[in-house]
């Protein structure tokens, strides 16, 4: 089994995690820029963080045979701090990088006017840089936050097929499907979504345009919940092709829209010979 975790914060994880992920079949990951447990107080701490996402972290991942890409943005929570806002002017430098495959995580935390402004500005940066957008949906007031995110996406003029709406659940999935965006689900030990609930959603909505991620970070989370979801899918009667679609081909297809996803190293292995996803095959 090959696994692409399209949303994981490796900066917060140890080498033990990389080891276990590699053993579980994780061959590629995307690390979105987000908040840390401790709020930042200025643009310099963002740029050092972004540097890590395009420098040190890909190097760490490569030591375990895992290909690392990133998404870059000012996250919605810190968009509310005027001391952090100047980082918006530095984003174009980072959005030009080979290893950056989307603008993200953008979206809403508390749905403030500052968040409105920064969300829209960054969707416009996605259009300028010809990049897809990765949109976080809020943990509080989620249904309204999801609808409002979809409204902002629509207003921006970005093709919904180039937008990934993440952290969806039973209540918010239908709106995302109707809007034509990609649907992301973060599988967590206790909270956002579990492997079994995910299987139920896949039964109802099918595996098209669905991405499953661990969103593992500095909180209680588990980088192997992608594998656990794959196992739950198989146990529930989905076949290996469905699993490969959700856990590999879908994220590859979504992020390939950046034109920058480079899986040369990880797709060269004998297991996948003649099965290059970049050719669009299955």
């Amino acid at each position: 089994m090959r696994i692409f975790d399209p949303h994981i914060h490796m900066t917060s994880r140890t080498t033990d995690d990389y080891q276990r992920m590699a053993e579980a079949g994780v061959k590629a990951i995307v690390e979105p820029a987000f908040w840390l447990g401790q709020p930042r107080t200025g643009p310099g701490s963002f740029t050092d963080y972004f540097d890590s996402l395009i420098g040190w972290e890909p190097f760490r991942a490569s030591q375990f045979g895992i290909k690392h890409h990133a998404t870059i943005a000012l996250n919605p929570k810190e968009a509310n701090d005027p001391r952090c806002r100047p980082v918006l002017d530095l984003l174009p430098r980072y959005l030009a990088k080979d290893g950056v495959v989307a603008v993200g995580e953008i979206g809403y935390d508390s749905m403030t006017p500052a968040e409105d402004e920064v969300f829209a500005a960054q969707l416009s940066l996605a259009l300028d840089h010809d990049l897809p957008a990765m949109v976080h949906t809020p943990h509080r007031d989620k249904a309204r936050g999801t609808q409002r995110s979809l409204d902002v996406v629509k207003e921006s003029g970005i093709d919904p097929g180039r937008v990934l709406l993440d952290h969806l659940n039973e209540v918010t999935v239908a709106a995302a499907r109707d809007a034509g965006v990609w649907a992301g689900f973060s599988i967590y030990p206790d909270t956002k979504m579990s492997p079994d609930r995910m299987v139920t959603i896949l039964r109802e909505y099918g595996p098209e345009r669905v991405l499953v991620n661990s969103a593992a970070d500095w909180g209680k989370s588990d980088p192997l919940l992608t594998l656990r979801t794959a196992e739950a899918m198989l146990a529930a009667g989905f076949d290996e092709d469905d699993v490969d679609r959700v856990l590999w081909r879908n994220p590859v297809e979504f992020y390939s829209q950046s034109g920058r996803l480079d899986l040369t190293d990880v797709e060269a292995g004998p297991t996948f010979a003649g099965n290059s996803i970049l050719r669009g095959g299955s």
């Binding site: 740029t47 540097d51 395009i54 420098g55 890909p58 190097f59 430098r93 980072y94 990088k97 080979d98 290893g99």
Partner: peptide, 8 residues
């Protein structure tokens, strides 16, 4: 300063 590893 703003380069990724390949740029550096």
């Amino acid at each position: 300063r703003y380069g990724d590893t390949a740029e550096k």
